[in-house]
Design a protein around this nucleic acid. Structure first.
Lengths: 361, 361
DNA sequence: GGAGAAATTTGAATCGATCCAACAAAAATG
DNA sequence: CATTTTTGTTGGATCGATTCAAATTTCTCC
């Protein structure tokens, strides 16, 4: 009963302690934030009073206003919050961000929202010193929203051309070329591409028009890399089906059905993410197709799951953790400059790719 | 250049806008927080001025102090921040917490720290309305620290007896009994227990003394459940080796070595977490032992990985996501009451357990 | 004992907003 | 046209702390 009444009462402020202890609030403040400059006797008295009155210590809300710095970075996405804990790519990225934050003692605030208005509000009201943005679906809008906060921010993946936003990403063209060359060198000539979106909220077979007017240059560049390299092997890239997935199960399966429905079944799949590739492997196995004997597949990202699945996934490995670390540091040590960093990628050959066989599966 | 200078200048405050637009700060505030009560003409003028001066909108730092509510919950642990993205149990729990936060539009602030002082500081200065605490190693200290903040908080896992702290956990005794009975009914008579810690920072073979003076009642209860049930089958529990692991690879392997070093090799392992169980399966396979033919193993938790490993893990499934959801809601809808909820668990039999064989492996 | 230095303490100003009682202006009513 | 109502605006108080120049106390040392 007493505790209930007590808990409903207005919380005790530093000023209350100061008055009760008979010191100024300046001194009371010092007792907590710079105890060494307060005379021991006074310090103990104030502390005793605080203890007796049940003071919880200086409220960070008050301190914050004065200090200006929150000492936390916001990580934003248009996906629901659970994305950070479910998606393998996001998780590895978060591990890198965590590392940088742990090192400096900064906190992490997760920002997201189901719908657009809430997202806007959450971005506007997040208590952070800057943002790291996961630019997936709706990335452009996320960047616009964040820009209005006028806080430092970094976009992950060089998803768009705007040179005024800081970003860290990988060389998508080079990575895609590595993937394509690997398959071409194994003798593959019939391909299918499981793509990411070329613009917001897209899914389905991509027309040349869609590809040409791509908003997401990351997707565009990966495709360009695939096609450039395949052309060098004399392959007619115009005939390659490119299916835009939403990087999840449903649209990826639809894409596979579309790609394998045609008369010229591919012997190799280029997937723009490991997640897509993993889903594809499951689908192919369920169809009774052997990977890599019947169909080879190369992913993109290099998430840990790729090494553990069956067969282990050949993929283009990005330095995801390092990207996360750098992004976080860019915010933590912000100096006002716009930075755009491009990281290298490498081809890691595992067991999901093998020589092309002549026979139809 | 210009932008650099601009960015270093003192940020524009609402008061600056008010002055420039020739209105009071009260009206300027209303333009942003309750636009509908401001005359359209004035509203547009103020907005135009704000736009022209590059005002970023009301600073949440200022608003916060007045509003009192942060609209975010803190999730605390003594592990490094990456724990939230690595540990399978934590991830499922976070998914539940995320769900509840998404539903109400609340944010999540991750709080952690490598060392004790930083942890204290991070807990003290986190801008949140309440905490959900992962009480693993050092849980008691985490609770003490959090209690001082005098904000609502919930401990996950009923790790200690203190009835004054809100907590959500599972019926550990019942769960452990299910696991033990399952193995006993399969004919197993020689057991080994891979335990969690009975107190902070412990590892190694647990003596009866250690078990009796356990700080973590969760661990204690699980062991009690195992032993109670095994006793009913006439098994001498005094002879069962109990090894305290740190729920990670190194100590778990050490535990397995210790348990399998004796002359009476167990035919069944009771693991107090799926993570431990999964590591154990790997270890057993590496030793050339077949699971479940040579050794059966039952986990505890019910994380998704358990269903995917080889062989799939028989385990005691906790409603982890639901626990997370409830914990978050307890903070979000805090009403001043201390709540302690015990959730049910169930045995899920997969392929890591089988009948005991007479022959030594 | 007193001058000067060093150590503490004070209290007003500030951080950036929101709230609200009081007031002013415009609109509706008699 | 005077009075009431409605609608919009104002500016001081407040949220809970920190900061810093100035004032005060205490300490040193001759």
């Amino acid at each position: 009963m007493a505790s209930l009444i007590e808990s409903q009462a207005r919380p005790i402020r530093l000023a209350d302690i100061a008055k009760a202890a008979g010191v100024s609030h300046g001194t009371a403040s010092n007792v907590f934030s710079r105890p060494e400059i307060v005379r021991a006797e006074v310090r103990e008295r104030v502390k005793a009073v605080a203890e007796a009155m049940g003071y919880a210590g200086p409220d960070p809300k008050g301190r914050l206003l004065r200090a200006g710095k929150v000492n936390a970075i916001g990580v934003g996405t248009t996906e629901p919050l659970s994305y950070f804990f479910d998606d393998p790519f996001a998780r590895v990225m978060m591990a890198g961000i965590s590392e940088a934050c742990d090192a400096t003692g900064a906190g992490i605030a997760l920002v997201s929202a189901a719908n657009q208005e809430k997202l806007a509000w959450n971005i506007q009201s997040a208590l952070v010193d800057g943002f790291v943005l996961f630019c997936i679906e709706g990335g452009s809008r996320l960047v616009e929203l964040t820009r209005e906060r006028r806080l430092p921010f970094v976009a992950l993946e060089l998803g768009f051309e705007d040179e005024t936003v800081s970003a860290i990403g990988v060389d998508n063209v080079a990575g895609a070329r590595l993937a394509a060359r690997h398959l071409a060198e194994l003798g593959h000539r019939r391909f299918g591409v499981l793509s990411l979106g070329f613009a917001d909220n897209r899914t389905g077979l991509a027309t040349p028009e869609v590809i040409r007017t791509a908003v997401y240059t990351g997707t565009r560049d990966r495709l360009a890399g695939y096609f450039e390299e395949l052309s060098r092997f004399g392959i007619d890239t115009g005939k390659i089906p490119v299916y835009e997935t939403e990087n999840e199960e449903k649209s990826t399966r639809a894409g596979l059905e579309a790609i394998f429905a045609g008369p010229e079944r591919p012997t190799a799949i280029l997937a723009m993410s490991d997640r897509i590739a993993l889903i594809a492997i499951e689908w192919l196995k369920a169809q009774g197709l052997n990977v890599p004997r019947d169909v080879s597949i190369v992913g993109f990202d290099g998430v840990p799951d790729g090494a553990l699945c069956d067969p282990p996934l050949t993929t283009i490995v990005q330095p995801i953790t390092e990207i996360g670390r750098r992004a976080a540091r860019m915010i933590l040590d912000f100096d006002g400059a716009v930075r755009r960093e491009t990281m290298g990628v490498e081809l890691v050959v595992r067991a999901s790719t093998g020589p092309a066989t002549k026979g139809r599966a």
